[in-house]
Design a protein around this nucleic acid. Structure first.
Lengths: 192, 192
DNA sequence: GGACACATGTAATCGGTTACATGATTAC
DNA sequence: GTAATCATGTAACCGATTACATGTGTCC
């Protein structure tokens, strides 16, 4: 799921400028998946145009700077559909929160408490955003995906609300962190 | 959450060689978060050693090639705890499956059907793996995280089982894909 | 005249993967 | 002899981000 494909996905349904694509990716209904930067969008658009997968027209606007509006071509549509037909790679998922949680005793109570609280706030916010999206969206498949995302977030949230306290309690609970490190010969330990 | 920090997280609780770290990251109890490659592990270990955050001893084994076993140093422990204390970045999440789902009409019934089935199979497998992990894990914070992951996956799974059919149905349901693209002047469309 | 949203682009850098290169040891 | 597992490492490449550079137009 590289920037190219993501741009084709957006342009498949509507023309857009690089600036608009950026906004959609970091605020709009695509923001749940992606947040791509200008530094990757503009070069990608240039390359897609060179390959004939998108076309570009310049538009002069009143009250705003000129902009370059990109449209997907038939070749671009074929390319995108071909990309969709390939079996999807498994989800990629990285969570610093879970690393902190996994090391609750080391992180300390206040850091953990803060992490849990702000995670809850963040998830609530995401949920609200998706509720908003689904209210204005007509496209059934998109709605399916958004509902999917919403149930995931809602479940996440209820787990945190139910078990967040228990996690924070582990921070205090000074279970001696098991240093199962094999004892190291002093002569090799040049760090102490 | 870069490779350095992940390696420190692993070494915090047990000594390990680069080869073992790789195995833990792609099979063991850390595999839910990470899957780092040899190409990033070995250079990272070298650098961590140069910085005095880990130390290294060579071990000759009987019946196996020599290996370099790394131990975290006190400086390394401090570094890791400092990393944990910083407020976590929001989760990063990428799903090719959701991109396909969002474009159900374009992906086609068979591709979608296959994607849903193999996702279910994959999630069932993940769940099984985590069940196994939790059975043998003593560390409370780790268990908290694994239970978290398990409920997320279980919810995901039940959503897919309940609504997967509805999604696949959307593939056939040939709702004319709304090409809201502004009509393009022919002279600008060099793709046809 | 300054802050802000709109708009496009490039260069340096980063953090990682892939592919390659090497080699020990065991099991068949 | 050859396949598989264990083990370490490097070089080329890739895909992205960050920071930089530039500029228009609006509102106060």
């Amino acid at each position: 799921m590289n920037v190219r494909t993501l741009i084709l996905a957006i342009l498949y349904h509507q023309d857009a400028s690089g600036y608009e694509i950026k906004k959609m990716s970091s605020e709009g209904r695509f923001s749940y998946f992606v947040d791509i930067s200008f530094g990757s969008i503009y070069p990608a658009l240039t390359r897609l145009e060179a390959e004939g997968l998108v076309s570009c027209r310049e538009e002069t606007q009143s009250g705003k700077p000129d902009r370059k509006v990109y449209s997907i071509s038939e070749a671009g549509r074929r390319e995108f559909i071909a990309a969709l037909s390939q079996p999807p790679q498994p989800d990629k998922f990285k969570s610093e929160f879970l690393l902190i949680a996994m090391n609750a005793e080391l992180a300390g109570e206040s850091a953990l408490d803060h992490a849990v609280r702000s995670r809850i706030a963040w998830l609530e916010n995401e949920l609200e955003m998706l509720e908003d999206v689904i209210g204005r969206c007509q496209h059934e498949a998109t709605k399916w995906v958004v509902r999917y995302g919403m149930t995931c977030i809602a479940n996440d949230l209820s787990y945190l609300r139910e078990h967040g306290r228990a996690l924070i309690a582990l921070a205090n609970n000074q279970t001696p962190v098991s240093h199962q490190n094999k004892p190291m010969p002093e002569h090799l330990d040049f760090t102490s």
